[in-house]
Amino acid sequence: MAITGCCLVLFLCSHAAGNATLFYSTQLFQAYADQLHSHPLIVSVFSKGLFLIFAVHAITGSLLFLQNRKARGQGYKIQTRAVKNSQASSTMIYSGLLILLFALIHTAVVSFGDHGKIGITISELFDSFFVSIFYLIAFIGLALHLSHGFWSMLQTFGVNHPRYNKLISRLTYVVPVFFLLIFSAIPLLFLFGTGQ
């Protein structure tokens, strides 16, 4: 989970960087997309690799969820948590499934759409209020997923030391908020009509 999660975070970084071109203009974004697709080998390797990593992450996550539910056995009559703010960690499977749903729709629309006019596709897409809201909800889900996932990944890699824990605990807020802002800014821009 942690290894695939780490790859996916790296992917998010590159995706965010690509998206950032939209803040400048749809044209620049189109140029970025064209440039990207002028190297079909890279695109094909990366997209297939990404699909694989994503699939592994989703499948092991689901299997883990089922396995762990079995290991728990009978639950308690009173369901409560001793840890405060445990919403993110206890809903990983659900936020994960939401992201999966989003990814399917998003790739269906964007990746399998016409790359030649991706910029226009995007601006048309976000003209729809409901699509924008769906995207925003998915990004909030992603942020929630990351707010546990990022720290959890480090913990699984064994990165837990009093010297770095302060930094790590800050990053657990900074990372998801960063992605939330950068991703949701796009539909927001289009929604409020300032996107070009």
């Binding site: 883990l64 396995q67 762990n68 948590r81 840890v83 206890s90 959890s152 913990q155």
Partner: peptide, 15 residues
Amino acid sequence: EGFGNCTNERECEAV
């Protein structure tokens, strides 16, 4: 032994 996997929920530490 059939114990589950850790998903870093931190409940163990809390109790």
